[in-house]
Design a protein around this nucleic acid. Sequence first.
DNA 1: CGGAAGATTTCT
DNA 2: GAAATCTTCCGA
Length: 210
Amino acid sequence: MIAPGKLLEREFYLRDTLTVAKELLGCRLTVLNSKVSLKSFSGNEVCLNFQDIYACGIICETEGYLGLSDKACHSYKANKNGRTNIMYGKGGFAYIYLVYGLHNCFNVVTQGEGIPEAVLIRALQPEDGQTDIRKFSGPGKLCKSAGITRADYGADLCAESETKIIITKPENYFSPQITAAKRIGVDYSGEAADYLYRFYITDSKSVSKK
DNA sequence: CGGAAGATTTCT
DNA sequence: GAAATCTTCCGA
């Protein structure tokens, strides 16, 4: 058995998006081979069988997308459709979309119902010392390597129902030193392109770009 | 209903 | 620096 740490609860996600984006740094993302129910665990301490884990790593790079006021956000100006719909619900669910017709990107919905914001998970730091860090460096590669697809759209990360995607605070968690920067790939979005909504663990080697 | 564009990656 | 590739939106 292996203990990824304490499951982040619903309240964690129902907050200011940039706060969530920063506090996700240093947390652990675990993806399982198949869906499991976590309800049997006492408190929120998660325990898993080693062979059930498909991939895992420490989140070391995120970006915040701030809904209505953020031109770079898919839900800018209350844009609502089959893709962005999940962002309008409460936080703690997976928002996954296809970019450039090729790559999936994994986001965590933040804020309460009716506030369509999310945090893009851009890179993971492997912990086993063997996995090539480039495998998880960049949102498209991260999804591909971790087996996250649009089939996981809308997955509940707070384990009220079965899930294969889990985010926990590790036992050895410590507050990382954080660098804020401009977001990647949003040059088209005018003044929003200059917002410092991208955050990464300052000395992490896994960050996609510096 | 056609065209355009995009929260990326990879190869030249 | 450009191609690959497809869903969604918008204008006609």
